[in-house]
Each structure stands twice: as structure tokens, then as C-alpha cells.
């Protein structure tokens, strides 16, 4: 079995890994690099729990081959906080009690950050459609949407 050598950047750090041709980026993040923040809820791009960004574009890492990360920039939930300083979105999710079990939250955070980078002043409807690819079974989304809208307002003010 020939492994592929990949040189990439994850959360600002240079990373090299060997992967098999069929392995997904999610597999390598979780199994090879111990970045277990991204979750596998479906493996078919339907739940969004594995959301990461690839060169700033929001993707399901279960639908990206690990070999495709060559020369790209990957960011995951582990890259959101700055040292011990939480990102505003992380703080707002906590303050709004917007998580119950929390399994969807890494994906929700990565997707929300991508939303606010592209649309700093989203309407609530825009936020709901942007996050429509991130399934949450616990919250009914209400508090998540409130947290994202609140974070957006604070980030615009900051």
C-alpha cells in the first residue's frame, strides 16, 4: 500500500503526514493528528459536525481526501481560540447556553466563523440558512442562532 506524503498547514502550523489514497481529511485529523475536535456524525456530508475550512472555504472534512490538503491551509475548531483567549463565538455559545450535548458545536463554530467572515452583518434568516448544513438534535437551534447573532453584533462593534 503506497502512502501519500502531504505537506500542509493546520491552524497556522506547518504539518506533514502520510495518508492512504482513500483516507479523508477527517480521518487524518482525528486518527493521525489527534485533532479530535471535528466529529464524524455521518461520513456523507449531511451533518456538518466535521466542518473545517480549507483556504478559508467551509467544507465537510469527511468529503475531502486527506491528499487534497497538500499545500492548503486548514483550520479546525482547535484553531479558534487564541491561546487561553476564547473567540467571541465560543464565548457567546457558552453565555447563551447554546449547547446541550455539544457534539455539533465544533462544526457550528467553524461554520459560524466562516459566515461572519463573509457576512459580518447577517440577517437571522441568513444565519439559519448558512447553518442549515449543521445538524443539531438537542437545541432546536434557537439559542445557537441567538449566540451567532449576538457574536456578529459584538464583532462588528469591536
Amino acid at each position: 500500500m503506497n502512502k501519500i506524503h502531504v505537506t500542509t498547514n493546520i491552524n497556522g502550523d506547518p504539518v506533514e503526514y502520510l495518508c492512504e489514497p482513500q483516507e479523508t481529511l477527517l480521518d487524518v485529523l482525528r486518527n493521525n493528528l489527534q485533532l479530535t475536535g471535528a466529529k464524524e456524525g455521518c461520513g456523507s456530508g449531511d451533518c456538518g459536525a466535521c466542518s473545517v475550512t480549507l483556504n478559508g472555504r467551509l467544507v465537510c472534512s469527511c468529503l475531502v481526501l486527506a491528499a487534497e490538503a497538500e499545500g492548503q491551509e486548514v483550520t479546525t475548531v482547535e484553531g479558534m481560540a487564541d491561546g487561553d483567549k476564547l473567540h467571541i463565538l465560543q464565548k457567546k455559545i457558552l453565555e447563551h447556553a447554546a449547547l446541550q450535548c455539544g457534539i455539533c458545536i465544533p462544526g457550528i463554530l467553524v461554520a459560524s466563523k466562516a459566515l461572519l467572515e463573509k457576512h459580518p452583518d447577517p440577517s437571522e434568516e441568513q444565519a439559519r440558512y448558512w447553518l442549515a448544513g449543521n445538524l443539531c438534535r438537542c437545541t432546536g437551534y434557537d439559542k445557537i442562532i441567538n449566540a451567532v447573532m449576538d457574536a456578529a453584533a459584538e464583532m462588528r462593534g469591536a
Binding site: 482525528r30 485533532l35 479530535t36 475536535g37 471535528a38 466529529k39 464524524e40 479546525t76 475548531v77 482547535e78 479558534m80 481560540a81 476564547l86 465560543q90 455559545i93 457558552l94 449547547l99 455539544g102 457534539i103 458545536i105 465544533p106 463554530l109
Partner: peptide
Amino acid sequence: VDKVTGRALYGA
């Protein structure tokens, strides 16, 4: 904090 930073350890 564990759950918004990816530190929390779930089953898998």
C-alpha cells in the same frame, strides 16, 4: 469550555 474548544472527549 471543553466543548467549544474541541477538548471534550466523546465516545470515538
